[in-house]
């Protein structure tokens, strides 16, 4: 889901940076000192998840876990993803520094939407509803992220519109896998550490 350097035009990069800066600013304001460890932990999970390869024949990709991270962090997902993407670009050459704004806004916006749409149901009393909402949040975040990647590419080069559809379709299997991962993660957290699912320390 990382867009590399050399694909996007200057206006697209500028819009991406503006959106990321606004999101990071809001996210940082909403973190209490008590919630910072949770943000750091989620950011680390996102940073490391990209190293886990998932084989979906005939292709292979890597996990992102943006759905579960969005459920945990809300608006604070922006600084968490920004930091992790910055380190991924520097240490692993994933994405790039010029496209950091676009990649941050793409993934963090998808994660935030998962939180806003499904967060309440995930934290609710019904375990079945929580499981279903967790799956939906994990899958939806990936699908939305893939759609946004396609939109960014098509906005910079209209000839890539066909690619946008292909990217969307190619990410559907990963969306199912990430939905299942989100389901297991939230089920585990509900049993072992339910407070972490509440936005404790995050306003």
């Amino acid at each position: 889901m990382h867009i590399s350097e050399g694909f996007l035009t200057l206006p697209s990069l500028a819009v991406g940076w503006a959106a990321a800066a606004a999101g990071v600013s809001v996210g940082l304001k909403r973190i209490d000192p008590d919630g910072i460890v949770k943000v750091a932990m989620a950011s680390s999970v996102f940073f490391l998840a990209s190293l886990i390869n998932v084989r979906i024949p005939p292709a292979s990709t890597h996990l992102s876990l943006i759905g579960p991270i969005g459920l945990l962090l809300g608006w604070s997902v922006f600084p968490a993803i920004f930091t992790a993407l910055l380190l991924q670009a520097v240490l692993f050459q994933f994405g790039g520094l010029a496209v950091l704004g676009v990649n941050t806004s793409t993934m963090a916006a998808s994660a935030l939407c998962a939180h806003l749409l499904f967060g309440r149901a995930v934290r609710g009393r019904s375990a079945a509803l929580s499981a279903a909402a967790s799956f939906a949040a994990g899958a939806m975040a990936v699908v939305m992220g893939a759609a946004l990647v396609g939109i960014w590419l098509a906005a910079s080069d209209p000839k890539m519109l066909a690619s946008a559809y292909a990217i969307f379709i190619a990410h559907i299997p990963l969306a199912v896998i990430e939905g299942i991962a989100a389901l297991f993660m939230t089920s585990f957290l509900r049993r072992s550490y339910p407070d972490i699912l509440n936005a404790a320390g995050l306003r």
Binding site: V39, S44, F47
Partner: peptide, 19 residues
């Protein structure tokens, strides 16, 4: 990978101290 995680927690500690 270890350096990345360490830097994330260092950044978090910095923000926490500042707050």
């Amino acid at each position: 990978a270890l350096l990345g995680v360490s830097l994330i927690f260092n950044a978090a500690a910095f923000v926490r101290l500042k707050r």
